[in-house]
Design a protein around this nucleic acid. Structure first.
Lengths: 202, 202
DNA sequence: TATTTATCTGAATATTTGCTCACTTATTGA
DNA sequence: TCAATAAGTGAGCAAATATTCAGATAAATA
């Protein structure tokens, strides 16, 4: 259960890579179908069209499968945010905030319920999650550092980034997952941008 | 597993009520101790000081125990928010927002990890959760309706409530659960109030 | 008090499920 | 061509865990 993370074979050949992809893809498919009860190792293997033995060739235990998916998600968000920061190094604060929020929303829209369901499976204190929060924190800190002159002078940066992180995360998440009927995605996006800017400029 | 919710005996005598309390209390204690792996029916019964049979007298299956706790939590938040709305019927917008946020933070500070861990156990689409979101939505709508004159005129109320709900929830949640070291709870609270007001007044 | 109803018990059962391992098949490279 | 290595298989084991049930105890009630 609390496994010692036995090292497993790394996929070298092409078909091995395909097997790993099939396994991860199967988990996504099961999660999307909303039947998390059938998220058993045997069923994952079946849905992936591979034998249960193959699963254990590449993943030391069940949790490692979820961790791999979680890591992928984190990496993508990371990459997306990095790209936005570079691309908008000289943009206005408004353009930067809008780009950040739109990028985050698009990243989550790709697999709406994934993150939510994964975070129920991946232990919250596992290294990756914490690191991710730190990197997000760092990225946001960097992002607003370039626009300090547009902010109120006596601001506590840590406090600002704390609020910013939670606002962006929950609004983007909410826009994709919990948007009430009658509100379009673009309207929610725009309102999120508006809210963040209102806070930053206050 | 996907149980048909067999009806169970309702506690009529006093000691039966105590048994139910002991069971729910034991789950809280185990969650607080941070050992969610030992959240088994047999261990819950043992920690509650009752026999496993008694558990199944009042709960048709394991999940029902968590649902009961979830419902309690929802009821408390509901009660707290209702009380604030009544108590601040004639207060200023700022006082109302501050009271709401402080109440939410206090409600979550009481059992920090409870909600987070419960939401991993209780299926997200279960009736209660959805209803709760609607009621929260309604409460916030009511709350700002009395202060429309302080808001920008051409506001979309649904959109405002959408953002408001997510801001309050994530900032309160974050202030209690994910507050970085170096930020005090009262500082986070104050900043949350500030952010919400900045948004509403923008 | 006698009877009925409610509550409690916990060993035993039934089920689920993560995971192994002995073996087969495919690919590589010398 | 032919070892050597990589990949794949799936029946079955072992452990964990939810749940039952037949019977004991306590409280309520007539």
């Amino acid at each position: 259960m609390t496994s010692a993370a036995t090292p497993r074979r790394a996929p070298r050949q092409h078909r091995a890579q395909q097997t790993v992809e099939a396994i991860l893809g199967a988990v996504l498919r099961i999660l999307r179908r909303g039947h998390p009860d059938s998220l058993t190792t045997n069923h994952i293997a079946e849905a992936a069209g591979v034998s249960i033995g193959s699963v254990y060739q590449y993943f030391p235990d069940k949790r490692a499968i979820f961790s791999a998916l979680h890591q992928r998600h984190i990496d993508e968000i990371d990459r997306v945010i990095g790209a936005v920061l570079i691309q908008h190094a000289t943009s206005s604060l408004e353009a930067l905030v809008r780009a950040l929020i739109e990028a985050m929303i698009e990243a989550h829209a790709h697999d709406p319920a994934l993150y939510e369901l994964l975070s129920a499976e991946v232990p919250h204190r596992a290294g990756g999650t914490q690191d991710f929060a730190l990197r997000l924190h760092g990225a946001f800190r960097l992002a607003i550092a370039a626009h300090l002159h547009e902010l109120a002078p006596a601001r506590n940066l840590d406090l600002t980034v704390f609020v910013l992180t939670h606002m962006v995360e929950s609004l983007c998440h909410g826009a994709v997952l919990r948007r009430p009927p009658g509100i379009t995605l673009s309207a929610a996006t725009e309102e999120a941008v508006h809210a963040v800017l209102a806070y930053l400029r206050s």
